[in-house]
Design a protein around this nucleic acid. Structure first.
Lengths: 120, 120
DNA sequence: CAGCATCCGCAAGGATACTG
DNA sequence: CAGTATCCTTGCGGATGCTG
């Protein structure tokens, strides 16, 4: 937590903090609004693209595919495409993604507790 | 996860999903880029505003105070101001904020594991 | 079915300067 | 010390239409 070196740009700063702070490292990977919910849905088993779309109708296709790609390139999600016509693509959690489940679960558990508090 | 009612606006949709998906409920509260790191720093004990600023030099004052306010109004953080000159303000986790620690910890733990994986 | 390309508005966020 | 206020840029994210 000490000695952040003087840096010139915000990007470098952000890079530094990402390397330095474990929490931010995580946020760099699952920080997008939709990423956790995608992971949440995939945590119950692998899903096809269209299934995800139906499961999360609020997200636009652009956002969905964009986040899926990022999750994939961040090694959290595995894309499995069967070379058939019509295309058949499924997404599932990688091992790293699976190990993230405790985080998602902890979030969910906290949410239920927090919802019951009476502050509004 | 079923029967999301037809809604007109994206805002309503997002509202629905926030109410419906526990994970998104959490993201609504700690989804900002800096919020988790603020909570992370506060999880080691209450801190003064200036201490937080020094601990997270990358965040601008605007973002810091903005997120602190949101965290406060979301009941995760308690602001304690001593009416002295010069001002003395400390921030600390509320009980709800404290109960969020497992999430933060799980994130941190996952981060360390993930960093050791060899994908880049 | 599973995407990609393009356009575009709007709000999140950064820099800077000022104040109780 | 602990903020506010203002301006301005960036890019997230929505809508629509097209493709292998």
């Amino acid at each position: 937590m000490t000695a952040i070196k003087e840096s010139s740009t915000i990007q470098e700063n952000r890079k530094n903090i990402l390397e330095q702070c474990p929490v931010m490292y995580v946020m760099g990977k699952i920080g997008g609004f939709w990423k956790p919910i995608i992971l949440f849905h995939l945590s119950t088993g692998s899903k096809r693209y269209s299934e995800l779309k139906r499961a999360i109708p609020e997200v636009t296709e652009k956002m969905l595919i964009q986040h899926l790609k990022q999750l994939e390139s961040d090694g959290l999600v595995v894309r499995i495409a069967k070379a058939v016509v019509p295309p058949h693509v499924t997404y599932e959690l990688s091992e790293a993604g699976n190990q993230l489940s405790p985080v998602i679960d902890a979030m969910a558990e906290w949410a239920f507790q927090d919802m019951q508090r009476d502050y509004k």
